[in-house]
Design a binder for these strands. Structure first.
Length: 815
DNA sequence: TGCGCTCTACGTGCG
DNA sequence: GTAGAGCGCA
């Protein structure tokens, strides 16, 4: 019972029974169906199971029509999982009528019904983060604001913050010059989106909220009556708009059930407000509260370690996670010497695990920031451990994919400026930045979209665009612009009668994009073509799916789906080790977990700007989330030095380690730190050289690369992370963070000339066209070589594209 | 106009 | 380490 939550509950016929193995509070949560209900569900307490049975119970026992039930989840994946489990209990016919989805997908679905009432075009597009930033950049330019003083990212996050409080540009009091500029940007941003017939993710919710809260609106009336039971999962992560939305949707009946855990609130930076769950009882004075505190997931040592971390958190809802599971292995806290050493350690433990018969799919590696993944990935790859990375650069963010999607979006909605801007000169049609700038000026002057500005620009009617009597554009440019417009008009015509996949193929053909890539005939272009093929396939899959559901396959529908799919949804159920940030790990569980980079400044993470003071609290909860993902085995690693973001840092082990109870934890040294611990003070040498003031040099760290195959060894019984400065373990000082001895003059760039490194001799034999192998990227072809003390080659790798790699990391291939 | 080089800044990321 | 922006040159 410890691991699998979903054994019981085979429903006899269409009538699911409440399975006996649900414990007291769980059964209460399932059976309590009238009035507001707040469920505090601790980590691993069988939450999903309770939600599923609760819904099944509503339908089977209380005969609630499925289409009257709304269940909101945090990710599509969670929604999918819930539907899947419900299908097993209730069958697909009933589940099809349920409303299960994320806030955004539910809102899009509702807006599709009521787009007119919401004042939206039928073909509205959804702008993602990149699109939004592009809009802000354009607005900054338009307002003649310096984008260094007003970084688009910051401006955008302010705009988001306003939106998540439900405030428009006119509801904000300006508080100083910066605010003033931000406000002007906000106005411009809203205007551009409206003009482009685009919405951002916040707008999806706000649009529905406005309808629901409008007592006059007929659409709002429909929405208010639509659902008789509303259930919200991960309630600790809702923001104010989401909360208002939920309250408005169930105002007429109060059958609102929310499930969450304030200890797992980790998205404050994104607008989530843990006070919402903490204040639920105040907002719903009649609410019942049920606490699920028994953890079924993890061995007791893991639960104890997690409790140690969360116990000292401030302002917690009082509750105590407990487990009757066996104590299991202790949590191992591993002191590594560097990030390479750490990665090697992780890889060798994974090898042991798989040798013991643990499936790679049941192993996960977590990190605080994506930047940590590179080294881990390199080692796993060289050790031939299969892995999948969740997040990072996603498929839909690759340039060629975005380009094709932008074409499709312009086909659906020519006013979407961000997309038009992206593709107007891809592939090159001699429409350069000068022309585009003019087009933007015309568009801004006339307050129309870029697409609608093409006509006036080529007509030269806009005299104030240019000085003097010269035509606004040359004949050539005029031809290019009109050619582009005609192309788009043809594609739009095609879209009226053809399927989405046919339109996509037509785009690739008519634009010459496919031909261009084929002619390039190198590995990079090849990879791009393959990606485009993959996108076409996903469109075909969509068409297939719609056909099966008996619905028309529309281009807008496909584009909408793409917009609403995210990283967290891409975890495949395949035998591969999963690598992800801790944020992406929320809601998941694994047999064995490696939590890496457990160092001060990295975890808890310290940002450049010394702004928000409460952040450590959220980091603490993040640590709690990470630890509670592990069922059986948990390794927590920290490195005494780490090269990240282009500099080397010396960080102390994380403060969170000290909060874990000693009995649940065991300190371990990697072979490298062990060696250093034995070495007498002063002769460590392993720290190599220091690059001085530039901080950009490499360390001699000769051992790092050779150490990849770290061997099994015995461990110190003493906790390696405790007070390293005065530890009784001899030589632990060396593992402690401190500046290394300097061996070159400050400011002088140190170049690693390790005699053992693959020799320069080979670089001479490399030339343009040489085939080479790289540990991480595999086979590639050399495009060019920059000579120098440490020559660098530009190499095209199949599937990875063009990379600049130091020649000594390349192995030449014969032939 | 477009390419290639240099400089910079770098969190986490639902949908 | 590296992607993306800015800038100078062909």
């Amino acid at each position: 019972m410890a691991e699998q939550h979903e054994h019981g509950g085979q429903a006899p016929g269409d009538r699911p029974v409440i399975p006996e193995e649900l414990n007291g509070p769980q059964a209460d949560a399932v059976e309590h169906v009238d009035g507001p209900l707040l469920i505090f569900a601790g980590a691993g307490s069988g939450k999903t199971r309770v939600i599923v049975y609760r819904i099944a119970n509503l339908i089977a026992t209380h005969r609630v029509p499925p289409y009257r039930i709304l269940a909101v989840t945090f990710t599509n994946k969670a929604a999918g999982e819930m539907k899947h489990r419900l299908e097993r209990l209730l069958g697909p016919d009933i589940v099809r009528d349920l409303w299960v989805g994320t806030f955004h997908s539910v809102c899009v679905r509702l807006l599709r019904k009521h787009h007119e009432a919401a004042g939206l075009d039928r073909g509205f597009v959804i702008y993602d983060d990149g699109d939004q930033r592009a809009v802000v950049a354009r607005v900054l330019k338009e307002l003649d604001l310096d984008d260094r003083r007003y970084p688009p990212r910051q401006v955008l996050s302010r705009i988001h913050a306003y939106k998540q409080e439900g405030r428009g540009p006119d509801d904000v009091d300006s508080d100083g010059y910066f605010d003033d500029a931000v406000l002007r940007c906000y106005r411009g941003y809203e205007r551009h989106l409206k003009q482009a017939s685009a919405v951002d993710f916040d707008d999806l919710l706000l649009a529905v909220l406005r309808l629901v809260e409008d007592p006059e609106s007929l659409a709002g009336d429909d929405l208010r009556r639509r659902f008789s039971y509303v259930l919200v999962d991960e309630f600790q992560d809702v923001n104010h708009v989401q909360y208002r939305l939920v309250r408005a949707l169930c105002k007429q009946h109060d059958n609102l059930c929310v499930v969450g855990d304030d200890d797992q609130s980790i998205y404050r930076w994104r607008g989530a407000d843990v006070r919402v769950i903490r204040g639920f009882r105040r907002d719903f004075p009649g609410a019942s509260v049920i606490k699920l505190e028994q953890n079924y997931r993890s061995v007791a040592n893991v639960v104890q370690a997690a409790l140690g971390v969360i116990r000292s958190a401030k302002d917690r809802e009082p509750k105590e996670l407990w487990t009757s599971n066996r104590s299991g292995d202790q949590v191992q806290v591993v002191a590594a010497d560097s990030e390479h050493d750490e990665a090697a350690w992780v890889a060798s433990r994974i090898k042991e695990l798989t040798a013991e018969g643990v499936s790679p799919r049941d192993i996960a590696v977590f990190y605080r920031v994506h930047a940590q993944s590179r080294v881990l990935e390199e080692v796993l790859r060289s050790e031939r451990i299969p892995y999948q990375i969740i997040g990072g650069t996603r498929f839909f963010e690759r340039a060629e994919i975005k380009n094709l999607l932008s074409y499709l979006r312009v086909v659906v909605n020519p006013r979407t400026d961000v997309d038009l801007h992206r593709i107007i000169n891809v592939p090159s049609r001699k429409i350069g930045s000068t022309t585009i700038d003019r087009l933007i000026q015309v568009a801004d002057n006339l307050r129309v979209s870029l697409y609608d500005a093409i006509e006036p620009l080529v007509e030269g009617a806009i005299d104030d665009v240019r000085a003097g009597g010269k035509p606004a554009v040359t004949t050539q440019t005029r031809k290019a612009l009109l050619g582009f417009r005609d192309l788009m008009e043809d594609l739009r015509k095609k879209a009226r009668e053809a399927s989405p996949s046919q339109v996509a193929e037509e785009v690739l053909e008519r634009t010459g994009y496919a031909k261009l890539l084929k002619e390039e005939d190198n590995a990079e272009a090849d990879a791009r073509l393959q990606n485009l093929q993959e996108l076409l396939q996903s469109i075909l899959d969509y068409e297939e799916e719609m056909k099966a559901a008996g619905e028309p396959a529309l281009l807008t529908g496909y584009l909408e789906r793409v917009s609403l799919t995210s990283d967290a949804d891409t975890l495949e159920d395949v035998p591969k080790v999963a690598m992800m940030t801790i944020h992406a790990a929320k809601g998941l569980e694994f047999h064995a977990v490696f939590l890496t980079g457990m160092e001060e400044d990295l975890f808890p993470f310290r940002s450049m700007e010394p702004s928000r003071g409460d952040d450590v609290e959220e980091e603490r909860r993040l640590a709690y989330v990470a630890i509670t993902r592990a069922r059986e085995k948990l390794w927590i690693t920290h490195a005494s030095r780490r090269a990240i973001f282009g500099q080397t840092r010396y960080n102390a082990p994380s403060r969170f380690l000290k909060d874990m109870p000693e009995a649940a934890v065991r300190g371990v040294l990697t072979p490298a730190t062990q060696m250093m611990a034995r070495r007498p003070e002063g002769s460590s040498g392993g720290f190599g050289s220091f690059s001085g003031a530039s901080g950009a040099g490499r360390f001699g760290g000769r051992g790092d690369r050779d150490r990849a195959a770290s061997t099994r060894f015995d461990t110190s019984p003493r906790p390696a992370w405790r007070h390293p400065q005065d530890s009784a373990v001899s030589g632990m000082r060396d593992a402690a963070p401190r500046p290394p001895p300097q061996s070159v003059n400050p400011g002088e760039r140190f170049i690693d000339r390790d005699p053992d490194a693959e020799s320069d001799g080979e670089s001479i034999s490399l030339r343009r066209g040489s085939r080479v192998r790289h540990e991480r990227f595999g086979l590639g072809t050399v495009n060019s070589i920059d000579p120098g003390a440490d020559p660098i080659a530009s190499v095209t790798f199949s599937g990875w594209g063009l990379k600049r790699i130091k020649v000594r990391f390349l192995k030449p291939l014969d032939g």
